[in-house]
Design a binder for these strands. Structure first.
Lengths: 200, 200, 200, 200
DNA sequence: AATGAATGAGACTTCATTCAT
DNA sequence: CATGAATGAAGTCTCATTCAT
């Protein structure tokens, strides 16, 4: 729509792909430009620096993921139902956007210095949203009384790493099986329930 | 007494610290040498390249963590008991070795290209160990029948990300609370058990 | 007009000058760039490495010299006439291109390891050409029956070292005198012909 | 005799070998020490610097060659006889000491800057000696009246380059053939003598 | 707007030399 | 004497960024 032949989008897509594969520092602007089929100088027409492109990707990615998931969740009623949807959607989103997921994992969780900028953002946006849903569930008695911040973080970590781990899965068949496993694990735990009287 | 005044250890400690804080690519050998209080050339007396130092740190870290946890677990009986110990030990280990944890998270999970070397190693060593414990628990009826590979990965991810997230926690008080939450979550799930009728 | 302001030529000229004066290993890319009035990085826009620039200079130099001399010689008739021209032209060429001559002497004759690449080339190109002219002369009876390979090599060595030695000569006067001496020496030998008695 | 187990000799031999094969700048003190089976520090017990070892080798080599050849020549009578012996001895010496010959070729003839030190020395010592023999021969009428400096230089260059070229020759058979060719060429020239009337 | 030639700061790595043992 | 661990100066090469076209 910008009349630029989609150059900006091509640059962003190329940057995301290569950043996630090789890492930010090992990616050259040259590579991005080539993959995007533009001149190296053109990169700088759209982004002030390589760093800015990364920041933009992370920002946009987090925002988009948050909006996507919230849009799926907000109409649902009940904390368990909402959390079930969150697990499903986040897993699928990360599975469909592995490069973004990998980027977040490396650049957000892997860094310590510029904690102000990136790590904080995801915590204060996405994880806070999870936490609120969980808090509500606890208040309403649907969920057990556990520390919601820890649970939210654990849920996020569980899904991210599984999504990265499952990268070889190409069939949605496999993805559904994994999703079911995660749902069971998260909602009911790993332990075999001690049937109240039976077992005797 | 290696007769080297502990230079090798100082270099490794410095490298781990700075790698985990700034990332591998943003760390210069100069910085490592300065932090280790040795000359720049001395770095190369102990490691053939910056890359080799990283590989060594990851290798050694993974091996040490694996051995540490296995030593705590192997004398225990029962899958649930073993898994409880694993959760406890891995959380504490990552909490006590946050730089290593951060390094693994970024360099192992954040990369895609050299999948052969590092990502494979942690999957095939540590996670496989978790998987075996879980498989045994399922076979013996202590654990529910879930996909053990997914569960093992989820457990690993849950603990890692929480350990990184909880980095501001300095009191063991806080750590114990987090640990308890994770134990409850992992073993019993987040859902309030629907007591069949009673509870009234 | 290559549109590059002759940068490539300036770099080559600078490299040749400094290589021949200080030697390849003692020459820094920085020096070449400064002499060529370009930035250090610009050197690498035109050549992949310092080594490549050397190789290019030697290759181009040998080729150019060979073509130059062959062009002078090919129209001439008679082996002696041809060889006279070769002596004249090679001496003048090396005298006018002393840096190249010095470079060849050091890098081609002075090395032993990468014999495959450079030393072979000059032998198989230029010296082989000399050898053919000599072989023809022997066949046609104009020249004495001597080992043509040794003679060709000797001729080449004689001219090269004299050209390097005579570097202080700036007047063509001096060069002509040296040339005459070489011609006499090569064609007639150093010995006073023992005219048995007569000739008077 | 120095009671040092021949360490100094081993170092010199190692340095000569490696210098001549790889060049001075591409040779590390480490390599020399290893080849000489001494510690790296020991090198500096015998030579103040790597450069000094090179200088010593060149100095010693030139002196030794000069003495060797002069000792063979001084008892002979007649310029032609002396020059014949010189050709024979220098060719053999260079053939038997190819590393030295290569070193001289590269470091003496290939350089331009420190002309004061090395290039001057060989010119003023060895070549001057040749020149004197030639001058005498001319004065006595045995040799033709040619510029003795040029002839001496040419003779030196002829023999050096042939000796380097003939490095693949291992049999003395081959060497003798080459020597004969050089003698013929130098003393009688390449041209078929126009027998005064004969040829008819 | 688009481009890529040009640039120089800066990174990794090597290696001659020193010096404590 | 002999040694090799330690060092930092220096060199090659990369790459983000600029700018003239």
């Amino acid at each position: 729509m910008s009349g630029d032949g989609g150059k900006r989008e091509r640059i962003l897509a190329a940057a995301l792909d290569i950043f996630s594969t090789q890492g930010f520092s090992n990616t050259t602007v040259q590579e991005i430009a080539e993959r995007a089929r533009v001149g190296k100088g053109t990169f700088y027409t759209y982004f002030p620096s390589k760093e800015d492109a990364l920041t933009y990707l992370l920002d946009e990615g987090l925002t988009h993921m948050g909006q996507h998931i919230e849009s799926k969740v907000q109409t649902l009623k009940g904390s368990v139902v909402k959390l079930q949807a969150i697990v499903q959607e986040q897993l699928r989103y990360f599975h469909n956007h592995q490069p973004l997921c990998r980027l977040i994992t490396r650049e957000v969780w892997g860094h310590n210095d510029q904690s102000s900028s990136l790590a904080q953002r995801i915590r204060s946006s996405y994880i806070k949203m999870l936490q609120e849903v969980i808090d509500n569930g606890i208040k309403e008695g649907e969920l057990r009384t556990l520390d919601s911040e820890t649970v939210a973080t654990a849920l996020y970590g569980m899904i991210s790493i599984v999504a990265l781990y499952a990268k070889e899965l190409s069939s949605d068949q496999g993805l559904e099986y994994i999703e079911m496993t995660l749902q069971e694990l998260f909602f009911s735990g790993i332990t075999q329930p001690r049937t109240i009287m039976g077992e005797a």
